[in-house]
């Protein structure tokens, strides 16, 4: 098995570093474009009796009397030292808020993608093999609808449906269980498993499944479409025709020849859909009342919680790079021609 070269890993880490640098510079410069006093924006547009005080504190924190490059330098320096400031909404360090919500979102995303990828591949292959038959037509229309219907809308329908059945799956964990698990990773699913509480594990997983299914719809539908398209394309390729001429069986041609060639494309696809799924996750989290990046943003918007938003930007950027690195590595392993 081929592994990525050291050169590649160094390059990836450098990219991550420069991206965070870019995000920080961008967000800091953006403040200066804001109408009015930057300190006013930084303090979250305060109103009322304590406004004066808050603005003064923000001015001090930003160091507005120093030259711009020095301001940016301190800003970046502080960030890399782990001091991400205080969230205006949560009154807690941003780093803490971000990691807590990130773990919650990842929990949902991991469950969603482990539903989406296998199911998408299986259905996509079925669709490609029975192209033009009823199964394919149904799958095609279904995937078209799943892509074009907003996931938050499907989630609302699903949620109302569950309510009508009398199933309440609001939140990440039943309130009565909340204090019974010791927090280690931050994910209730994993924490309950570590502490061996099966009933809590079942409860948290049950609560994660419906929103995860909704988040999974988009990547799954896209996988079906891409596989359907590219398997048909691969079946046109010379090497598949030649394999037929050598008398290989149908299943062998489909799985070992056509599907094998699709894996790099699927891996690349999910590197990209991941970013898009974060938006879906955000809306679905809100509907199902779960913590996560999405609900953090919804809570941050009314308070103009700028430090929290910067933290979220940087972290989701790093997350994107990590996911794409994994997707790159899968491509290298699955395609002998690619080298990185």
């Amino acid at each position: 098995m081929k592994m990525p070269s050291l050169n590649y890993i160094i390059k990836r880490i450098a990219t991550a570093f420069f991206v965070v640098l870019g995000v920080l510079m961008l967000t800091y410069v953006l403040i200066y474009f804001s109408p009015g006093n930057p300190a006013y924006t930084w303090a979250g547009r305060p109103r009322g009796p304590k406004a004066e005080e808050a603005i003064k504190a923000a001015e001090e924190e930003l160091g507005l009397n120093k030259p711009l490059y020095l301001q940016i330098y301190t800003h970046i320096n502080r960030f890399f030292k782990g001091d991400w400031g205080l969230s205006l909404r949560f009154k807690q360090p941003v780093l803490l808020v971000v990691t807590r919500n990130l773990v919650a979102s990842l929990e949902l995303l991991v469950v969603a993608f482990s539903i989406a990828i296998p199911l998408g591949i299986i259905l996509g292959v079925v669709s490609a093999l029975y192209r033009g038959y009823l199964v394919d037509k149904v799958l095609y229309v279904a995937s078209l609808l799943l892509i074009s219907f907003p996931r938050f809308w499907i989630a609302i329908l699903f949620y109302v449906f569950l309510q009508m059945l009398g199933v309440n799956l609001f939140g990440r964990i039943a309130p009565s269980y909340m204090l019974m698990v010791e927090s280690r990773v931050g994910s209730y699913i994993i924490d309950s498993l570590i502490s061996g509480r099966v009933e809590i594990f079942a409860d948290t997983l049950m609560r994660a499944l419906p929103p995860a299914v909704i988040v999974a719809l988009y990547p799954m539908a896209l996988t079906i479409r891409v596989i359907r398209f590219s398997i048909s394309e691969k079946l046109h390729e010379e090497y598949v025709r030649q394999a037929m001429s050598y008398g290989l069986s149908r299943s062998k041609i489909v799985y070992r020849y056509a599907l094998r060639g699709v894996i790099p494309a699927i891996s690349q696809l999910h590197g990209i859909t991941f970013a898009y799924s974060i938006v879906d996750t955000a809306t679905v989290e809100n509907i199902f009342g779960r913590d996560g990046i999405g609900s953090a943003i919804v809570k941050a918007i009314p308070y103009n919680d700028y430090p929290l938003i910067i933290g979220l930007l940087a972290v989701s950027g790093i997350l994107f790079i990590v996911v794409n690195t994994v997707s790159d590595i899968i491509q290298v392993i699955s395609d002998p021609r690619v080298r990185i």
């Binding site: 474009f33 999405g294 919680d305």
Partner: peptide
């Protein structure tokens, strides 16, 4: 490409 639109929108809302 790496910046998620949703978070960027939140940042812009805080600013403009």
């Amino acid at each position: 490409i790496i910046i998620p639109s949703m978070v960027l929108a939140a940042a812009l809302i805080a600013i403009i």
